[in-house]
């Protein structure tokens, strides 16, 4: 099946007072209809900026798409004029953000915010149509007494309910792709479970493709089909979810997976760690970005940035020692 979204060599730069900072340094992936792609990484890995670039929502004028393409069904979103992009955003590609309190407008009712996408993308709808559609949407995302909620403001809702409203807004125009940027990070774990199952149910019903951005590998394991792991603005590993968790190939992925405390590990034992910290974009070393923290680093790693090599039909890893280390582990 042809992918619905194809991102090729996407590069994003921020122009700051201290000079240009390249935060996304060539990201490639494809997304098929009905599938979920997870993007995982720590702060500063470029995962959120990647999604903002796809939506063309980078802060202006500092955020610039330097190169690459984002093609949705054959249309390159990076080349669209702002007015043309507006026809896609919220209509074919939608986004749900981490903090529903800041993403929703605090002085507008739920009715107004839900109706906005209809007014913009379906100008022929009457106010009556919009009300019916809005109530149906709220019902669909599991909000009790939707008629009553329509005239409430975001602050009258709990965090979980606000996130449901955000999802309702995102789904209003039945997008082909939903980008969820840390949608459950600000929520409690029991509410997170509700939202995750909601997103999965809606995806199944509408056949949407989902890009799920999170730092939580547990969430990735639960919702994704394929995963890309990002580090310092690049994809370091890209694998089907089962393969990634069973046999991570990149030393960074392996380190991340080992360092999470799990419910079934022996209490009060030392956790394996990744030494050091994520490097600053302004002081990235020559060669592999992960070299300073990698337990397997050799001289060659410092010479040049490794390519994102194909491991098998569907997997990729950006490490010159992938094969060798794989053998060693065996």
């Amino acid at each position: 099946m042809a992918p619905i979204l194809e991102v090729k060599d996407l590069r994003v730069r921020f122009d700051t007072e201290a000079g240009p900072v390249r935060v996304v340094r060539g990201v490639d992936f494809e997304l098929e209809k009905g599938k979920t792609l997870g993007i995982v990484g720590e702060s500063g890995s470029g995962k959120s900026v990647t999604s903002l670039a796809i939506m063309r929502l980078l802060p202006r004028p500092s955020g610039v798409i330097e190169g690459g393409s984002v093609s949705l069904d054959g249309t390159d979103l990076t080349k669209l004029a702002p007015s043309e992009m507006r026809r896609f955003r919220g209509n074919r590609v939608s986004m749900v953000f981490q903090e529903p309190m800041t993403a929703l407008n605090p002085v507008q009712t739920i009715r107004r915010q839900l109706g906005e996408s209809y007014v913009l993308h379906h100008p022929s709808m009457t106010p009556g149509d919009i009300e019916t559609a809005s109530i149906n949407l709220l019902e669909e995302v599991g909000i009790p007494a939707p008629e009553k909620r329509l005239d409430e403001y975001p602050h009258q809702l709990s965090g979980g309910m606000r996130q449901r409203v955000m999802i309702a807004i995102a789904l209003a125009c039945r997008p082909d792709i939903l980008i969820a940027d840390e949608p459950t990070t600000a929520l409690d774990v029991t509410i997170q479970a509700q939202i995750l199952s909601l997103i999965k149910r809606l995806q199944k019903e509408h056949g949407m493709a989902v890009i799920f951005i999170t730092h939580d590998l547990g969430v990735i394991a639960e919702v994704c089909d394929e995963v890309i792991v990002m580090y310092a603005g690049r994809v370091v590993e890209r694998r089907p979810v089962n393969d990634l968790f069973k046999k991570p190939r990149h030393p960074y992925t392996k380190g991340l997976l080992e360092s999470i405390p799990r419910l079934d590990t022996e209490p009060k034992t030392m956790l394996p760690t990744i030494e050091g910290m994520v490097p600053d974009f302004s002081s990235l070393p020559e060669g592999c970005s992960f070299q300073n923290r990698c337990p397997h680093c050799v001289e060659d790693c410092k010479a040049a940035m490794p390519e994102l090599d194909r491991l098998d039909e569907i997997g990729f890893s950006r490490c010159i020692r992938t094969e060798e280390l794989h053998e060693e582990i065996r």
Binding site: G160, T190, A193, C224, N242
Partner: peptide
């Protein structure tokens, strides 16, 4: 029980059908 069940586990082979999802808010 529900709290333990709700924690996402970094294991994609986990059977999610037994996962308990608590309704409502605190």
């Amino acid at each position: 029980q529900a709290l333990i069940s709700a924690i996402p586990v970094p294991d994609p082979t986990r059977d999610l059908s037994t996962k308990q999802v608590l309704e409502g808010d605190v």
